[in-house]
Design a protein around this nucleic acid. Structure first.
Lengths: 219, 219, 219, 219
DNA sequence: GATGAATGAGGGTTCATTCAT
DNA sequence: AATGAATGAACCCTCATTCAT
């Protein structure tokens, strides 16, 4: 699987003008939405002629794909993979500690890609079928590794005894419930630490049995 | 329970054709998005001439407003008001029981207005400033009544001793985290009972102290 | 030939609503021009439904005709006829005296029909062929009577010895040169007396031999 | 002598297609009027696509401005300036001689820009406020120079002893009275020499004292 | 006679895309 | 590779006109 770093290699093969086209598209799509951004707008912000926009990216739609594809195909899956890796990398730690660390990293990550996230959300809302490919890929990634990740903590009584997918669903649900409203209201970027605290504290109430929770905090 | 069309008193003054224009707009905006819906599409689905679309709704944008305004101004605030009313209406009941009932009703309600919700989300993502008016109104509604609603349960030990606004934020966050993904992926409408169970069970873990929780379930 | 009074008889056979339609058209056509006035505007100002506008006047164009025809077919020719009648009615008077009287009356007359005049000018500018019918009629009227009208004064040395049509052309040219700019700039209606003085004084310089002029003034 | 197209320096920066758009607009606006000319008509006559019409001239209204502005801002003021210059350039000549020369030149000039003049008249009739800017500019130009221009001839007894502005008003009134009807009836362009003779002869009667007039003719 | 909802042709305008330079 | 003029389909919207009530 490609990593984030790999994902950007394609772009580095672009000329400077083309990269500025890509960046302008990112900014404008995020700001005004895909349909409300004209290729003329893009050319103007990129500082090039309108024809240049189409030299490399044959189509406006291809431009959207060029903006979103690395995010959808590489970055988002990587978020999941890294999340699970964080949770399973040091099994000697208490689940609560790892969860906090993993959640914090992911929030930071998503906040750093807010523009892509905004565009992504816009597109999904208009055309949910876009999600299908991604979802199935993610489900595959998750299902193959998630059971062994959680079972260890469940055995130690540090994690509620739910179906592993339900735990994932719960965590991602709570995360989205907090993050989407913020991403969408672009003005004020979230305070990462504060949000992490609030989310994790709440998640722990639901996911970690009371006695194990106390233990984690006294440690 | 009122639906969008009941709520908008003006609608009853519309001719049949105009109502079908409104309905067609609702369907198409939800399905393809505002910008990807042409007024010709609307006319075709409404079974009228394109000019008819503009006879009552002077502008395509006014049509969007006519679709969304009752939802934003009447239905959404009502959801909040009803939610708080459900929670405070029968204070002799255990908080857990009322929460389940209130959450279930709201989910049903939102599911019945999925199309409006989809359009609303699309518009907010493109233009977050739309939210400002709504948010400030809701905050007002909530803040004036929410403290007295929760304090009773907190005194009985049936509700965690958080700031009332944080409780609201948590509940709505979890609800949104579950509902938005479903609303957005329009194909499969959510099973209300199942979702209610999952959300409430999780919320109770976080919001109701353990001992009070047991008590509620044995009752 | 019909007189102004006859010309309006047709209109009096209209219902009150239809008359208000006619009046509204006159006002709006004069103010904004024919093409920039919608039948909806007319209906609104006339205080009736849009359909009512078409009940009597089958076409918007027919409405324009209804507004202009009495002006073009009756009023304007009458202006000429009356002008010549004024000049020939009392041949014992000096030409200068009659000219002043005739010019004054005509200016007053035209000022009282400024709106029709404005619309007429607008239409002629767009479609000069409209003039042809009128011009040929007027030429006929003028030519048949004008020679005998002027020859008497020319014999007395009170009028320059030009071809009669040139005299008419000169008078109407000067009149139009003064009046059209004023009619077109609708804000300030002309002071009839002052304008008459200026025009007549100038016309006399050109049309009446010097010695006869002195005589007229000392009389 | 400059024509409209020479006067508008910007025009040279237009592509050939855009110049043909401008020329087509000039022709059609003059022929059928602004509102009765569709942008499709313009495109067809210019031999380009409708989109091309809007590439340079963002708006149909901007196209009208592009057609009229050089006429109103450059050519018309220049007509006045040149007229006064002609009258004051060779003070050793008799006023009558200079007037004939100046009138003739101006008539020729206006006849060469008949189309612009027609459009200009149409627009003024619809929206007289357009004139205000022009009028105030012209009044300024005239007032600052006109007194010294005429006083010399008045001192020599070659020009009636009127207020300078009244002389101007008279000349322009007579000119307009002759020219507007002709411009408006586009079919038959005026014979410049004949019209000049008629107008000048008449003007001299009114503007030049009799004894000076004889002198001018015997010279 | 009056109404006003409905019509549909046509108008101005935008925009992704092409192509000669 | 880059340009920007040109394109034409599609879009939103207006308006004179009709017709059932």
């Amino acid at each position: 699987m490609k990593t984030l770093f790999d994902a950007n290699i394609d772009n580095s093969s672009l000329s400077i003008k083309q990269q500025s086209v890509l960046k302008a598209s990112l900014i404008l799509f995020a700001e005004k939405g895909y349909e409300n951004t004209s290729t003329q707008d893009i050319a103007k912000l990129a500082g090039c002629a309108e024809g240049t926009v189409f030299k490399h990216f044959k189509t406006k739609d291809a431009l959207l794909k060029a903006v979103l594809d690395p995010f959808v195909n590489d970055i988002l899956p990587q978020v999941i993979v890294d999340f699970l890796k964080d949770l399973s990398g040091q099994p000697e730690e208490h689940f609560a500690v790892l969860l906090r660390y993993a959640v914090r990293d992911r929030i930071k990550y998503i906040m750093e890609n807010r523009q892509e996230m905004r565009i992504f959300i816009q597109e999904i809302v208009k055309n949910p079928s876009m999600l299908e490919g991604l979802t199935s890929r993610l489900v595959l990634v998750i299902e193959t590794s998630v059971n062994q990740v959680f079972s260890c903590y469940q055995a130690r009584g540090e994690l509620v005894d739910w179906d592993a997918m339900r735990i994932i669903r719960t965590i991602s649900g709570v995360l989205l419930g907090y993050l989407i409203p913020n991403i969408v209201m672009s003005s004020k970027p979230l305070d990462v630490d504060e949000t992490t605290n609030e989310i994790v504290e709440f998640l722990l109430q639901g996911l970690v049995p009371a006695e194990a929770r106390d233990e984690a905090e006294t440690r």
